[in-house]
Amino acid sequence: MSTSPSPRRRDAVAKAAAIEAAAVDLVLERGYEAVTVDMICARAGVSQRTFFNHFKTKDMALIGPGAPTVDERAARSFIVSTGPLLREATQLIRIDAGAMASDPGLLARRIRAVGTNPVLMARQMERLSAIEHELREIIQLRLQTQYPGENAEDLADQADIVTHLLAGVMRYIGQSWARQVESGETPAIDPTAIGDALDRAVGKLG
């Protein structure tokens, strides 16, 4: 039987969301360099101690805690599938909406805020790099399952290439999200939307 979160847990989630929103909005208003942790705390109505209980740095509050992870259920299906390899590989990546679940507009504001600073953009991409090794192993296992008679070293090279392609696809999709935000849209971040974005990109190559 499921239980609802305790009042303490709900309070912690609400404070983290307030900190994220404050950090993003202040950067959009004043610029990344001008924003301090003290300013974020004042806007969010929390103490510095509360801030650092949730986020190690100003940058982490801006980017948010929702780092990409590998979807284990999607990975199990992917390994035994024979469908479109790259499209299905995009669905291995799960992006946690975090505070955006209670503030859908935060996604659009965050993309704009991160796009104002190359350091933030680089750190955002580092998050995808952190799971590249795991993605490569899953892709290699899929290739070994699908093509059991092929040379293992060749399959490892192919997995490496697909993993690099996947990283490029995700960068492209991130840039597409930023363009959507600039035009006033709020982009979807679910796996199906990511796959659809890939299909549109590949379609342009044909």
Rank of each mutant, 00 (worst) to 15 (best):
A34C: 02
C41Y: 08
A101P: 00
V169Q: 06
K204Y: 12
R109I: 05
Q48C: 02
G195I: 11
D25L: 07
N53S: 10
H164G: 08
Q144H: 11
M121S: 14
G105S: 10
G195H: 06
D157F: 07
G98R: 10
A99L: 04
Q175H: 11
T36D: 11
I93C: 03
D103R: 15
D59K: 03
V114A: 06
A74E: 15
E88Y: 03
I194G: 03
D160N: 00
E185H: 13
I138Y: 02
M125N: 04
V13H: 12
D157R: 06
G184K: 07
V35L: 07
V169D: 10
V202H: 00
A167L: 03
Y147D: 06
Q124H: 07
P7E: 10
T57F: 02
A113W: 15
L85E: 04
E72G: 09
L28A: 09
R43W: 05
P68D: 05
F51E: 15
V46F: 11
A75Q: 11
L120M: 09
M170G: 02
E33R: 14
I139L: 10
T82E: 12
D59V: 02
G195R: 06
G184E: 09
T163G: 07
L128D: 12
L155W: 08
D196H: 09
G31P: 01
A23W: 04
A193E: 11
I95A: 03
A14E: 15
T163I: 01
T57V: 01
